[in-house]
Nucleic acid binder design. Structure first.
Lengths: 211, 211
DNA sequence: GTCTATATGCTGATAGAC
DNA sequence: GTCTATCAGCATATAGAC
């Protein structure tokens, strides 16, 4: 086949198929050949739409970031807004666990990544936080979100209690087993979110003493 | 050459060379051929000492985790111990930035990873934290450490202010540029550490009311 | 048990025909 | 804008020398 009168591919179709492949069969299954085969074309055809595989992955990542709800930012009081935004952020990652390692590599340079960072930064500044602090708080929340996502979705502890009870009796008692890892990370995320926002509220009060 | 009378390779020599290669030339430079060449042997020889490349990377990761200082745990009061431990943890990652993406994938199943988790868990329990809370706090601190390491060492924002000021004026003002990313992550780490420990101290006081 | 040599089947990516 | 053909590099398997 040569050039078809109607293109078989476009960026959106490729990104959608790539995300489905990663969600369904894991990151390792995403090879240019596999992806192209699923789209009914041959491997190198993808390179007419993306310069490299990395650029393709970038676009996939940005699609996922577009799923994060930002509507509470600038609308609700900052502590609640920050909490709900972080939960929505985490939920977006949880919907695509196989992609988390890719998402974790840097804040991203694409439209949705920037929209995300701009929204939370703006909401904090508008609420009265100094710019420097707002930047740091935005970064901080990302750490919490990605840390808990990485722990949960990327391996974790072996599911064999004996491995631990043998040499690390206290760890064994901590229920650090694979079956519980997800629950632990969700609990740690919520604990951290609450403690962090409480700690930040103390700091905010020192910054803006009430009367 | 066939079997040399004195083995050319052993696990320690391989791990050391792999870490040097990753530190010096990045993760992508670590191929079995490159590594073997640097050790004066041919590629497949490594498989006499490690079953897969992943197992090798696992061993490298564990070596780095062995550099984390644990001496303050169980010695100092828990808030200070937690803070200093987190800083030592972060410093160990900062010493091997190219390895951070690998380190971030799960808590690890090797001796030093378990020693680390056991030490912090034990110290918190001994200080009076319930087991469940101690587990969550340990996880939480890892999120902070890895999140700030990933942000700093794994790409970050493009170093072109115009990209931001055009469509995201508030972000531009936030100094979210590559040259500042490292400082931001260090600041966010310290801010988060302080706020988190303050928030946890409040929680601890509710748990153990003073008099 | 430790090495070398060789081979397999992946991978991302390029060149040129249509 | 898609094809086919092709490339170099990858992790890894296998066979054999000692």
């Amino acid at each position: 086949m040569a050039r078809p009168r109607n293109p078989l591919l476009n960026r959106e179709r490729i990104v959608t198929a790539a995300l489905e492949l990663v969600d369904g069969e894991g990151l390792a299954a995403l090879s240019t050949r596999r992806l192209a085969a699923g789209l009914g074309v041959s491997g190198p055809s993808l390179y007419n739409h993306f310069p490299t595989k990395d650029a393709l992955l970038d676009a996939v990542v940005d699609t996922v970031l577009g799923e994060v709800d930002l509507s509470m930012l600038g609308r609700d009081p900052w502590p609640e807004a920050l909490r709900d935004w972080a939960r929505s952020y985490r939920a977006a990652l949880a919907a695509h666990p196989n992609l988390v390692p890719v998402l974790a590599h840097g804040p991203g340079r694409r439209a949705n990544a920037l929209r995300l960072a701009d929204a939370v930064f703006g909401a904090l500044v508008d609420a009265g936080w100094p710019r420097g602090e707002a930047t740091r708080i935005g970064a901080l929340m990302r750490y919490l979100v990605f840390g808990s996502a990485l722990g949960s979705f990327a391996g974790g502890f072996v599911d064999d209690q004996q491995v631990y009870t043998a040499d690390y009796p206290r760890l064994g008692q901590a229920h650090l087993l694979a079956e519980h890892q997800r629950a632990i990370d969700e609990g740690a995320f919520e604990t951290g979110l609450a403690a962090l926002i409480e700690g930040l509220a103390l700091r905010f009060e020192r910054l803006h003493p009430a009367v």
